[in-house]
């Protein structure tokens, strides 16, 4: 098994070339490489490098998003093979994410979803203008660990509070961690409504999610 292909996989993620990442993933399947090894030694290595460079301020958010997209494309190619072998990628946790009802702002929430998924979370993105019941139904269906609620409007922020209350009313509050975000949301608001996590930006949201999974 050649290390060249692993290096090429890492490089495709670093360069954010999703067609190339997908092509290498298909080649790995053809060559009989275990998909889990391809992910860990190839694509994840690239993602880790991008994450380090981002932290150092050398790479920018678009680098991170392009890398995450390449990673996603590769994993999509590898999934059928994993299913065939009866293996599965270990995920850090399962996240249901969306923008609350009454609000159509998409980008912040999508960015958080993309970065979570690139960092090893299984993410179900419900989109925008999502009724609270839909969050709950989906979270129960996929046995989510974390539910992420985004909002950009002060008038819809209240839905974050209502959701925490709805979880309590349904007797399932302790089953899920609630992560809140959006421009008008502050740490004090998150604390007041009893959310478990909060971040002001997308990369901080990943750290917050990791902390929640570690029980922090």
């Amino acid at each position: 098994m050649s290390t060249d292909i692993f290096q090429a996989m890492a490089q495709s993620v670093i360069d954010g070339e999703k067609e190339e990442a997908a092509r290498l993933a298909r080649q790995a399947v053809t060559d009989g490489i275990d998909p889990l090894v391809a992910i860990d030694q190839g694509f994840v290595a690239g993602m880790r490098y991008v994450g380090e460079q981002y932290t150092l301020g050398e790479m920018f958010l678009p680098d991170l998003v392009l890398a995450a997209e390449a990673m996603k494309a590769a994993i999509a190619e590898l999934e059928p093979e994993m299913a065939r072998r009866g293996t599965a990628r270990q995920v850090l946790g399962t996240v249901v994410i969306g923008t609350v009802e009454g609000d159509i702002h998409d980008i912040g929430k999508t960015l958080v979803g993309t970065l979570l998924s690139a960092n090893g979370f299984k993410v179900y993105d419900l989109g925008v203008n999502v009724p609270l019941q839909t969050f709950l139904d989906k979270a129960l269906e996929v046995n989510a660990d974390i539910i992420g609620l985004s909002t950009l409007l002060t008038t819809t922020m209240i839905n974050q509070r209502k959701f925490v209350q709805a979880l309590e009313a349904a007797g399932v509050r302790s089953r899920f961690k609630v992560l809140v975000g959006g421009a008008p949301v502050t740490r004090s608001w998150a604390a007041e409504i009893g959310a478990d996590g909060y971040s002001e930006d997308a990369s901080g949201a990943v750290q917050a999610a990791i902390q929640l999974m570690q029980g922090g």
């Binding site: 301020g57 958010l61 678009p62 002001e200 930006d201 997308a202 990369s203």
Partner: peptide, 9 residues
């Protein structure tokens, strides 16, 4: 213009 490091406004 977006802040290229954080994505922030």
């Amino acid at each position: 213009a977006m802040d290229m490091r954080t994505g922030g406004y």
